[in-house]
Design a binder for these strands. Sequence first.
RNA 1: GGGCCGUUAGCUCAACUAGGCAGAGCAGCUGACUCUUAAUCAGGAGGUUACAGGUUCGAUUCCUGUACGGCCCA
Length: 492
Amino acid sequence: MDETSEVIRQRREKAKALADQNIELYPNDFKVSHMVEDVKKYIDQQAEAVDSTAMFAMAGRIMGLRCFGKATFIHFADYTGQFQAYIKQDEIDKEAYELFKHFDVGDFIGITGNVFQTRTGEWTLLAKEIRLLCKAVRPLPEKFHGLRDPEKRYRQRYLDLLMNPNVRDIFIKRANIIQAFRDFLLERGFLEVDTPMMQPIPGGAEATPFKTFHDALGMELFLRIAPELYLKRLVIGGFDRVFEINRSFRNEGVSTQHNPEFTMLELYQAYATHEDLMSMTEGMFRFVTRQVLGEMHFTYQENSIDMTVPWRRLTLKNALSELGGIEPSMFDDRDRLLDFARSEEIEITKTGQVGKILMKLFDVLVEPKLIEPTFVVGYPVEISPLARRSNSDSNITERFELFIGGREIANGFSELNDPVDQKRRFLDQVANREAGDKEAHYMDEDYVTALEYGMPPTAGEGIGIDRFVMLLTNAASIREVILFPQLKKAGH
RNA sequence: GGGCCGUUAGCUCAACUAGGCAGAGCAGCUGACUCUUAAUCAGGAGGUUACAGGUUCGAUUCCUGUACGGCCCA
């Protein structure tokens, strides 16, 4: 791409000059005795009594370099932090210093020496020996402004991570969030499992799957859109509490809120109901927030969110009437709903079922208003084909969705474990599919068979990890919380 | 899929409403400098202005198309 760039040419020449003097450009035999963090801890612990003769072998990437002719200060970084080193011609020999002059910002080095305090008080490694550990032939982005170009940041995330500390923090936080969810569930006796990413029948969600093909088996496969039906098979198999944190794939548009592959936590607990899960969810999100942020409120974009306030629960219909301005008398009237949608300039693409129209209106009119953590319950059966019917109203399900910061974060329900009803629901979905709904569920006979062996009363839930990471890192785009977001092939 | 905006040196950005030799800072190079931390000082170098066309005596600038990206909408 920039093979002819002068800077790169010059650095390649420097590398060649070193190689010509029998300097290894990519050795791997330097032994590190202390990471940056170790040395900093040592200094803190020793206070006044730092041993000025103790030897430290440290390594890292040169991040800054200030040369004064016969002496040079550098800052180098390893995973645990940055440290300053002072390279003086008097301390290493003259030849070694001449070689060192061929080192650049971006190169990896190993330095052996003692620590001392500079005039300004900064603890610094006084080099007795310095070695090149890896020559970088491309320059790092500018030190002060970092890397700004979003396209470059995503395509060359390694540069983004090197130059922008806040980006690094986001991904460390992401790892901590996932770990906190895992800790919470393991503590409660859940078993972490892995279920197929390649499925002969994609199930568990309304979405368009990616198709692939297994040559040896001669069979079409789909990348999973959700792990749900496999996790419930495990509950049937006697694993009463299971969870999985992993990728699902949906063959849909890419946006600030959607990446074709995204990470979900799904969990199932036998002998629990959707009510139990709502309580657990509230505790789990509080636990994760406290673990990761150390406090219980945070700011997301314009909104400040307090996780300690008891989470509101409202029914879908109350939400639609209170926050969406839809008269309750309209709820069962398809034509009036369509008129209303038109008057609000909301385009309805799936006009078949009332439930779908209500959900669309909810997405546009209500969802953005659910800033503080809020559970919405009372979802109609027709849009919840895997959820148990409510004991008091067979037209709605024991289902909830959790909204925080105006976004859906979780979706859970008491599971449908009646094989006869499940089969009927699948058949309804198949009818929808035949009527043109490409996102309708497929019939999964094998899953119905599994239910016929008996699934205990169970509740389950899926949590959008990327979205929750966005909340806790105040990221406006999902691309800021996925290391390598999907982009089109680079053009030239 | 639609609308708006963007793409200029390795990086961050200029070059306007006026179409006239494409500029700066950082990085890099040469020289000076043995306690600096966005080191400093002096000098010099670095460009197919995303790509392909068009208008024009002349295009980074105006027009058309393409690619990629950002934001908004679907």
